[in-house]
């Protein structure tokens, strides 16, 4: 794992990195707006429109229609035949929101392995933002249905303390702790159905574990494991796992 682009959490952080709001003296707040729906119209037409329809007249086609998408459980639209993988993802708790859609559209198979949607993914974070702002217009309005999905990405719903990111982990301690990881994750960096974890830049690893720790990234086992780890332990694991390189 080399580039940041491979790690969805990190990419997401980059995509929404402007979330922090600036406060000006005249009391006006400039903040992240979550994309321009007009620009998103074009992205939709080019990237999605062949298979997906959206709007008052939209029906299921090659892909499911996208009305009421936000807040919907994955694979749950009646009358559409989803892949088994998509149905299972929904049953396991995947709900379409800005964050999950952003990850999915960036790299569909990294989020729902085995999805039938044959789409390579959209790497441009800005285009995804515009696309999602466009699609959000076709789901319930929170003014009228207060429980409707948010209309603005929450941004990284977790924060990694600067001190933890800077922490120098002890690789020897990490090696000892990693024995627990390799019960499930492959030691040689191959994808055995469970994401490989070796050779990551330490910072990426720390962020990923914090994402689980705070429940921002969903996985029952990883959330539990991450919560059991203290900062020093996470830093140690990050330091050790970074020293391992995938075998070719």
């Amino acid at each position: 794992m080399t580039g940041l682009g491979r790690n969805p959490v990190i990419t997401l952080l980059a995509a929404t990195g402007i979330v922090g709001s600036l406060f000006f003296a005249d009391g006006v707040v400039a903040s992240e707006t979550g994309g321009d729906p007009e620009k998103g119209t074009k992205v939709f037409a080019r990237e999605c429109g062949t298979c997906h329809k959206v709007g008052p007249e939209a029906r299921n086609g090659i892909g499911p229609h996208l009305n009421g998408l936000f807040g919907r459980r994955a694979g749950s639209l009646e009358g559409f035949r989803y892949s088994k993988a998509m149905r299972e993802a929904g049953e396991n708790g995947l709900v379409w929101e800005f964050e999950t859609l952003d990850l999915f559209i960036e790299n569909p198979r990294s989020v729902v392995k085995g999805t039938r949607m044959s789409y390579r993914g959209l790497k441009d974070a800005d285009k995804r933002r515009h696309l999602l702002a466009f699609l959000r217009q076709f789901s319930d309005n929170p003014r009228d249905i207060p429980e409707a999905a948010p209309t603005l990405p929450e941004g990284p719903g977790f924060q990694v303390p600067e001190s933890v990111l800077k922490m120098e982990g002890d690789p020897a301690y990490g090696e000892y702790l990693a024995s627990e990881c390799f019960t499930c994750h492959s030691k040689d960096g191959s994808d055995n159905g469970i994401s490989p974890i070796i050779g990551w830049p330490p910072e990426d690893f720390v962020v990923a574990l914090y994402a689980y720790k705070t429940g921002y990234r969903k996985h029952p086992v990883m959330e539990m494991i991450a919560r059991s780890l203290g900062d020093e332990e996470i830093a140690a694991l990050a330091a050790y796992l970074a020293t391992l390189q995938p075998s070719e």
Partner: peptide
């Protein structure tokens, strides 16, 4: 909710 230049936007609920 938080204020964006366009609107008061729902963040979480």
């Amino acid at each position: 909710y938080k204020a964006t230049p366009e609107k008061i936007a729902k963040v979480t609920g």
